[in-house]
Simulated assay, not measured.
Amino acid sequence: MTALGLLHPGHSAEDDYPRIEQLLGSDIRVDLVRTDPGTDLAEDAHQGDALLRLGAPHRIAAAVERLRLSGAEAVVWASTSGSFGYGWEGAHDQVRTLATTAGMPASSTSFAFVHAARELGAARVAVGATYPREVAARFAEFLRAGGVEVTAVHSAGIATAAEAGALGEAEVLALARAADDAGAEAVLLPDTALHTVACVPALEKELGKPVLTANQVTVWEALRLTDRRVNAPGLGALFTREPIVQV
């Protein structure tokens, strides 16, 4: 049994993770531990200052002990905006602190996107973000810092995670279509609040290219940290290709 630890900042789309666990269809357990966002982040706003507070070390560290007791072998901070909001270097510091505190390999969803794009050999990507335009632009900057070329960025301008979590499959498909760019080798949907796991195959069939979504890449990153590779076609191209990423 391989136990994967995920630190999650809220409630939106958390039901994607049991679905992923089921689709993996092997001896893998996905343990989700919720961090306390604090009363000042009750709406989980997609805004600069709120993103920094969301990913503050003391908020993450408070949940680590519960995760350690679960027997997790690796931990991923399952918040894209709560990691890229710190910038490339700041996100590295965040992950190093998490690894030291947890006593196990650690990463975050933002780095998962960079590693997953490399895994697929997708040097050029398009981004479909629920976030407001300025926050979406910061995610694109993060990808570029990781050596991934961003050919297009589409912003849905959604203010909170709760609103993003309420979107259905039709809206997710529309977001992916709006983001797609002819020069992109993959389309990225970065919000962990967005329900995407059930429709990844449909997204890839519609666009004719790999689609990377936040909850999907988060679990893949945890597997990568534990040196596990699982063939799970129901989770898209990322889970059906031979590994090429250099660790």
Rank of each mutant, 00 (worst) to 15 (best):
L7Y: 09
H8R: 14
P9D: 03
H11K: 12
H11G: 03
S12L: 01
E21D: 14
E21A: 15
D27L: 12
I28V: 15
D31V: 13
V33F: 08
T35E: 05
D36K: 05
P37S: 06
P37A: 09
G38C: 02
T39P: 01
D40K: 05
L41H: 07
D44E: 13
G48F: 08
G48N: 13
L52Q: 12
G55E: 07
A62G: 10
A63E: 12
R66F: 06
R68Q: 14
S70G: 11
S70D: 09
G71T: 12
G71Y: 14
E73G: 13
W77V: 01
S79V: 03
S81F: 06
G82S: 01
G85P: 08
Y86I: 01
W88H: 12
W88P: 00
E89D: 14
H92Y: 00
Q94G: 00
Q94K: 04
A99D: 02
T100M: 06
T100F: 01
T101H: 04
P105C: 03
P105F: 01
T109H: 02
F111T: 08
L120K: 08
L120T: 02
A126E: 10
G128I: 01
A129P: 11
T130I: 03
P132E: 03
R133A: 15
E134H: 15
A136F: 00
A137L: 04
A137V: 01
A140I: 04
A140L: 08
V148G: 03
E149W: 02
V150M: 05
V150F: 10
T151K: 14
A152G: 01
V153N: 11
A156R: 15
I158F: 00
A159D: 14
A159E: 12
T160E: 07
A161V: 08
A162I: 06
A162W: 06
E163M: 03
A166H: 10
G168K: 13
V172A: 08
V172S: 04
L175S: 05
A178M: 09
A179F: 05
G183I: 08
G183W: 08
A184L: 07
A186T: 11
A186R: 12
A186W: 02
L188V: 15
L189S: 06
T192D: 07
L194R: 12
A198W: 13
P201S: 11
L203E: 10
E206Y: 02
K209Y: 04
P210F: 01
V211D: 05
V211S: 09
A214W: 09
V217E: 05
V217M: 06
V219I: 10
W220A: 06
A222N: 03
R224S: 03
T226S: 09
A232T: 06
P233Y: 07
G234I: 03
L235H: 07
L235A: 11
L238H: 05
E242K: 14
E242S: 14
P243G: 03
P243S: 11
Q246A: 06
Q246C: 02
